[in-house]
């Protein structure tokens, strides 16, 4: 076992401890694990299932039901572009096509250099000022192709 996985294992145990008396704790646990590790690794499923007295199949079923949870590591940066109606009405289809072209991948894919993941999102609740995107933790409104290029350049510089 690597040191990195020891740390991850310790953080999983701490998360399970925190939620041990919470009714319906599975979603809060999965959120904490993903926030801590970036994704929900396969090896964590058995421990989570055991802590909740559930089967691994049940936990797996929950992880795969929800779009938010991921079972593989994310790219270094994540770009989400809203695909819902209010942003469509303000040009999100064109913006998405531009992003796919400059990153060289389609939605759910990663850029050629593997550094930026491109994901759809269905509404950020900023529907008067679309098209809206979220780049890592930051939401940005009124994004056109030029603004998107500047934002992508800024995260690439920042490493």
């Amino acid at each position: 076992m690597t040191t990195e996985q020891d740390l991850a294992q310790a953080s999983l145990q701490a998360i399970l401890q925190t939620h041990q008396n919470q009714p319906g704790a599975l979603l809060p646990i999965l959120h904490d694990v993903q926030d801590a590790l970036g994704f929900i690794p396969d090896w964590a499923v058995a421990d989570i299932a055991k802590a909740l007295n559930q089967s691994r199949a049940e936990v797996h079923g929950v992880i795969t039901f929800y779009h938010h949870f991921r079972t593989t590591p994310p790219a270094q940066h994540t770009l989400q572009i809203c695909q819902a109606e209010a942003c469509q009405a303000r040009g999100s289809r064109e913006l998405t096509a531009h992003a796919e072209q400059v990153l060289g991948c389609s939605l759910h894919g990663q850029s050629a250099d593997q550094r930026i993941g491109l994901e759809p999102v269905y509404c950020l609740g900023l529907c008067s000022t679309g098209p809206n995107i979220q780049l890592n933790d930051k939401m940005v409104s009124r994004v056109d192709a030029a603004k998107l290029d500047r934002l992508l350049a800024s995260v690439k510089e920042a490493q």
Partner: peptide, 26 residues
Amino acid sequence: VRKAAGAYVCGEETAMLESIEGKRGV
């Protein structure tokens, strides 16, 4: 406060209850 996980159908009240109980939002 409970955080959802990106499933639109959990806005349906019974799917939401399932989700709060820690299950698939069915």
